[in-house]
Amino acid sequence: MEETSEELKSILGEEALKNLPITIQLMKKMKMNEDPNSIMAFFNSDFHGSDMHHDAGQYKPISTIHNE
């Protein structure tokens, strides 16, 4: 937590850090959402990995010579 607060302080400035609720600090830090009241933004970014390799008993491609 200490480290993160320091990180935020350097990005937002000490005063802003004191006054802003933590959700808004996060929003600013992540630059991810226009609506600073919505914490949902953090939970919207999902990655579903490429599934093409699993179905044939293979868990990874042998090479990356071709992008699907």
Binding site: F47, G49, S50, H53, K60, T64, I65
Partner: peptide, 19 residues
């Protein structure tokens, strides 16, 4: 495609599995 086409890493090719 040549051998030198290999090594491409992009977000569409992320693979998430236990192995």
């Amino acid at each position: 495609l040549r051998n030198s086409s290999c090594g491409q890493i992009c977000k569409e090719n992320l693979i998430i599995n236990s192995d």
